[in-house]
Amino acid sequence: MTATFDLWKFTKSVLFYALVVFIVVVSVFPFYYAILTSLKSGTDLFRITYWPTSFDLGNYASVLNQGSFPRNLLNSVFVSAVTVIGALFIAVTASFALSRVRFRGRGLLLMTILAVSMFPQMAVLAGLFEVIRALGIYNTPWALIFSYTIFTLPFTVWVLTTFMRELPVEIEEAAIVDGASPWVIITRVFLPLMWPALVTTGLLAFIAAWNEFLFALTFTSSNDTRTVPVAIALLSGGSQFEIPWGIIMAASVIVTVPLVVLVLIFQRKIVSGLTAGGVKG
């Protein structure tokens, strides 16, 4: 009797760990395989292997030495960084108002902000194109910085509002009694307390901007102004056999590794940032 019970328990934990292993393998394998491919060259590429067989950095060399890929990387860094800084700057004061001051229409405004962050970017593409042409920033990084605000700003406002709401009311009241104006409260009391939240939010917005494709594809038109997602998407030859898979995988790995490292370092913060605002219903 006891023996069968233990057997059942054993089977259960074996099945559980099998599931765990399955989840991990499925999650990681494509990335692993991309690395593996990027280290192959020539005809090796077309020999399917499950384990690393060669270590050839030739693909990385060609990605970084020819064409505009290094330039695209710089563009991506610049666009994402400026977008995030701009969004955070605007979002901090706005989220103070949204989380700390009660005024008529606040609930509606919050819903609108959420709606903007969720609505299809396709719906504004034509109008944005016109605005960007009118501003004369078509085919420059500023076109992307400008257009990315549509998703980074609502997102940062939403998350920072959630974070700021959690700050104790009494600290703010103590500051009010001390004679602090709202601006002083934000800059000298709240901001120092919000660094973790700002880092998390900024990081998430950075990743979103870094990965953006539709606007980048539409509002840039030359190799030198593109960001990496577009550059990778357009790295192709004429027919299927000419697709430079090795180089594409090398570029993919270069683009992804910094993100993966960041995500693993800030794991906990990212999880809390992703779920903030979402699950408090």
Binding site: P168, E170, I171, E173, A175, V177, D178, V189
Partner: peptide, 17 residues
């Protein structure tokens, strides 16, 4: 509040951390 000449001690201390 700041012009009333008051000072307040809060239940949770409310010190600036």
């Amino acid at each position: 509040p700041s012009k009333r000449g008051i000072a307040m001690v809060f239940q949770s201390y409310a010190l600036y951390p």
